[in-house]
Design a protein around this nucleic acid. Structure first.
Length: 226
DNA sequence: AGGTGATCATCT
DNA sequence: AGATGATCACCT
């Protein structure tokens, strides 16, 4: 996308939320014009384009660095593509899963828990029959997991991490976990990383990431409107 | 290679 | 149709 400058970073949660709400109703074409960029024809070769455009408009600082988007505020920014019915069209990538050095890892101190502690969700129309530049931004919501959501996340995380510790990472599929799943996260299926094998020996396997299932994100979006 | 931003596209 | 497994671009 090659954006050189960005908007100023918001100093407070209220300022961030205010800025996000101002974007509601605008199209991606309008936002691209303001940022001085040309929208790609589609997202096939620019899968992160929408997220990066919103980062620019909201003054996110992290870029591709492994820190929160709004470091001072401890807030993650996630755009989420929604259907005509207002439901998520895709699962949501959260972070890469650790596959080694995971003995004794606890949910409370986990990277994923910190990532999900406070998230600014920005819904964006995502149906592929809507031209990218005509898609509208929806109303943002600032979310933290409630007790039930956190319990669900913890349960799935513990199940998945138990399997990883036991050297069963290659038996894990996207069907494991109720709200959180583990799936490949790499440039392609030739990329390999270190993990534990079934007998505790080191093996090479696909890097994996944690993803939130659509049912989970759908409910948290709905919760906002209740 | 590992991280950021995610969606694509094939299979069931 | 929906979900899983695979993939794309860019940065460090």
């Amino acid at each position: 996308m090659n954006i050189k400058t960005t908007q100023p970073t918001p100093k407070t949660e209220a300022e961030l939320l205010y800025r996000a709400h101002q974007l509601a109703g605008m199209t991606l074409g309008e936002l691209a014009a303001i940022a001085g960029i040309i929208p790609p024809p589609d997202l096939k070769r620019d899968k992160g384009w929408v997220g990066q455009l919103l980062e620019w408009h909201l003054g996110a600082t992290a870029g591709s660095k492994p820190i929160p988007d709004f470091i001072e505020l401890g807030i993650e920014l996630k755009t989420i593509p929604i259907s005509y019915q207002g439901k998520p069209l895709e699962t949501t990538f959260v972070c890469v899963a650790p596959l080694i050095g995971v003995q004794g890892l606890q949910w409370r101190s986990s990277h994923i828990r910190q990532k999900l502690a406070r998230v600014l969700w920005v819904p964006v129309e995502g149906e592929r029959d809507i031209p990218l530049e005509d898609r509208h931004v929806g109303s943002a919501l600032l979310w933290s997991p409630n007790a039930e959501e956190e319990a669900q996340l913890q349960q799935d995380w513990e199940e998945l991490m138990d399997m990883i510790v036991l050297g069963q990472v290659e038996t894990i599929t996207g069907r494991h976990g109720e709200v959180l799943q583990l799936r490949p996260k790499a440039a392609n299926s030739k990329v390999l990383t270190e993990a534990y094998g079934a007998n505790g020996q080191p093996i090479k396997t696909l890097p994996r990431g944690f993803y939130l299932k659509k049912q989970f994100t759908s409910q948290l979006l709905q919760r906002h409107f209740i």
